[in-house]
């Protein structure tokens, strides 16, 4: 992974995340979160995990964010409607929780073998023999051979969802 893509992705993700938690407008917060997801997607792409990178955009930045927006619009969350959290106890609890999470994540990362091992392509290939983890081709191989049937059933599932949602919404009752 080259430095440029790491800094690009990392800075975008961190900035997006910080902005998302500090915005007062819920819609703005969600849009910044989309930016954070795009940044993370760049990080995945830089680590040669193309499939996860694309899924990150499709599922998180696409589907899940749309769901968030729907919920915000259904609840009519306006900045004025959100009570300001002024209680110092809440702020302290929030900082403590965030700190604890950071500590746990750092501990797990440092303890993992990946921290000390050489992460270059050549080193990974020397250890595992291949370098296919996270590659789209590896996923496609399994998906279109061993798991072809469930993949095709998914189309029936989507058809049911489409017909159902049209039936429930189209005509005036």
């Amino acid at each position: 992974m080259d430095d440029a893509s790491f800094w690009l992705g990392g800075l975008t993700a961190v900035t997006g995340g910080l902005m998302a938690v500090t915005r007062r407008n819920a819609v703005a917060s969600v849009m910044w979160l989309v930016g954070a997801f795009l940044g993370m997607s760049v990080l995945f792409l830089g680590m040669d995990a193309g499939f996860i990178g694309v899924i990150q955009v499709l599922v998180y930045a696409g589907a899940i964010m749309v769901l968030f927006l729907f919920v915000i619009m259904l609840l009519k969350l306006t900045p004025a409607g959100l009570a300001r959290v002024d209680r110092p106890k809440m702020t302290i609890a929030g900082i403590l929780a965030a700190g604890a999470l950071t500590a746990i994540l750092c501990a797990v990362a440092v303890a993992s073998p990946a921290w000390t091992r050489d992460g270059t392509d050549a080193a990974i290939r020397a250890r595992t023999g291949t370098l296919v983890q996270g590659r789209t081709a590896a996923v496609a191989d399994r998906l279109f051979s061993d798991h072809l049937l469930p993949f095709e059933i998914t189309s029936v599932l989507l058809l049911a969802a489409i017909v159902g949602s049209v039936a429930l919404t189209k005509r005036k009752v």
Partner: peptide
């Protein structure tokens, strides 16, 4: 297999939601 189990089951469930 569990993949087929899950998508088949959800096909039934989603149809019944509607």
């Amino acid at each position: 297999d569990f993949m087929t189990l899950f998508v088949s089951l959800e096909t039934v469930t989603v149809a019944f939601f509607a």
